[in-house]
Design a protein around this nucleic acid. Sequence first.
DNA 1: TTGAAAGCGATACCAC
DNA 2: GTGGTATCGCTTTCAA
Lengths: 344, 344
Amino acid sequence: MAPRSGTRPFSQKTITDVAQRAGVSISTVSRVINQSAPVSSNLENKVKAAIAELDYRPQTAARALAGQKTHTIGLLLAEIGTDFYPLMIRAIEAEARKNHFNLLINVAGDDTSIEGEIPYTLGEYNSDGVLVFPASLSDDELYRMHLNNFPVVLVQRRPPAGLEFPCITIENKLPARKMVDHLIEVHGFRRIAFLSGLADHEDARRREQGYHESLESHGIPYDPTIVAQGYFQKQASQDAVCEWITAGFEFDAIFACDDISAIGALSALNRAGLNVPNDVAVVGFDDIEVSRFLSPPLTTVKVPIQEIGRAAIQQLLAFMNGEVPDMCTHFETELVIRRSCGCR
Amino acid sequence: MAPRSGTRPFSQKTITDVAQRAGVSISTVSRVINQSAPVSSNLENKVKAAIAELDYRPQTAARALAGQKTHTIGLLLAEIGTDFYPLMIRAIEAEARKNHFNLLINVAGDDTSIEGEIPYTLGEYNSDGVLVFPASLSDDELYRMHLNNFPVVLVQRRPPAGLEFPCITIENKLPARKMVDHLIEVHGFRRIAFLSGLADHEDARRREQGYHESLESHGIPYDPTIVAQGYFQKQASQDAVCEWITAGFEFDAIFACDDISAIGALSALNRAGLNVPNDVAVVGFDDIEVSRFLSPPLTTVKVPIQEIGRAAIQQLLAFMNGEVPDMCTHFETELVIRRSCGCR
DNA sequence: TTGAAAGCGATACCAC
DNA sequence: GTGGTATCGCTTTCAA
């Protein structure tokens, strides 16, 4: 029989091949693969042998179609090319794999969808549930998923008003405030600059609030000239700090709302020949992997990145299994004092 | 009709729903979705309207099963939690998406497969082709894929003897040699330490060869006491350099076989109170995103990370389309002189 | 405990 | 151009 056009150029073993080789029905093969019903150990061994001999792997498409489960979890991010995500994704991938789920990755920012065309993203048509990161999915889409009762877990993001989704959050405002308190109380700084994040990023906004609160509680006036947008980017942050320096603005410390911006700040200072922390102190937030290896090691707030990833998958799995997930998993964060603030 | 057990808890629109709503057959719906045959613009509009009204998205499982294509590309890595991959994955994701392919990610190192169980990884049963990174897949598995004529593109890795796969490679030995030449000829260093990578990583081995060749051509004896394994890791590299310092070994420069190890080296030197580049110079390889923001900015070899990712997808797509891919796509790399070597 | 057979939701062939 | 229908490979009922 000639293959139809569109047939793959490579052969695929099927469950029927296995069944024939083992001398059983395909039902039995399915049962031993999925352990979905008892099979006599005699047949079970035959089937296992046949599977091994043929090096058979079930086609996921057929499995998904018949079983109405894709065995796939989707990851929806706004941007994957940043230093914040490697460890997060590592943890997510490991946890998904442990539970025999595949990981489908989708970066919303790269969207090339054409008006009127069906969008190729993540949803009920290709996964059993998704992890949604900040700024990656519109409220409309979230609403649609909610209507369809599709399992979604929000990471570092709370659900929009009226919707209920489990979410994984972290403590931002208080540690940000404590960090600035530290700069003020321990080191005596009063001119503390701030590098903000993205406007649609909740964590970043709360960190900025912490900055304001600390300033206020110490009676230090807010000075917008030493506040700039870092956009979670090294280059933008470096540029901003360079401008401050060029403009002659005075500041004795910089609080960056994430470590990536802090790296940009460190770089700007280094280029200007300023010493950290002697001339200017720099502190960040997140404690990404590289932070403790910087020169000087960065004082920051430790966010349990891998725990967040693990928890996200666990809540999603619970949701998918029809269990009641924790609607809010909240992680504490703590100051990590290293050398860039002037300590030691 | 009651749903069978195992049915998803959430409803799914089907092509039949769309056909009914538009008053056409499912064949016609399929044609407009895939533009696989001409459809009168009258019906086409009706179908598009129905799709929009129902917010219909074709189920990928059904599509894959019927069409014998998964529309999915697999990424097989040994480790995803490193600073080298973010930009690579970003480029790969963007390029895959542009071509309407999904991205499935699999980290081989996390393997939790159980003896006798069917391994849940990547292959012909769940993707149309895979990108294989160093140390992520055994030669046996590669051989199996080759037998099945399954599209594979190797990235930063050459095929094992006897197998033919398109591969994406970069220039390693020559630039490594030039880098060490630079250290010797421009800066007059003769005690140059080396931080090696992983033994099963071809790029790392070639870079080490470049180091040897440069030393040899300058008549500098190879000194194993100042050569250590950095394992592409910051911590391991930091530890190695700390040990050298503690042991009192002398060296005036460190050539790290990748930027990640260089960061570890920088950190060790900083902790020991040594100035880079005045006391010891440090150079790396890869030019990952953070390198130019380090203090001091890192002299390194620029590897076109995003171009590699893009080329890998393009070759894989060609392979999958039955075209003849370039069996070897080779990228040049160039020295990027910054300040950590002592220049400026 | 086992096998036969009815779907799952698409694609693509065939006839009209 | 359009519709009917066999088919993809598997899971799950149902009957034995």
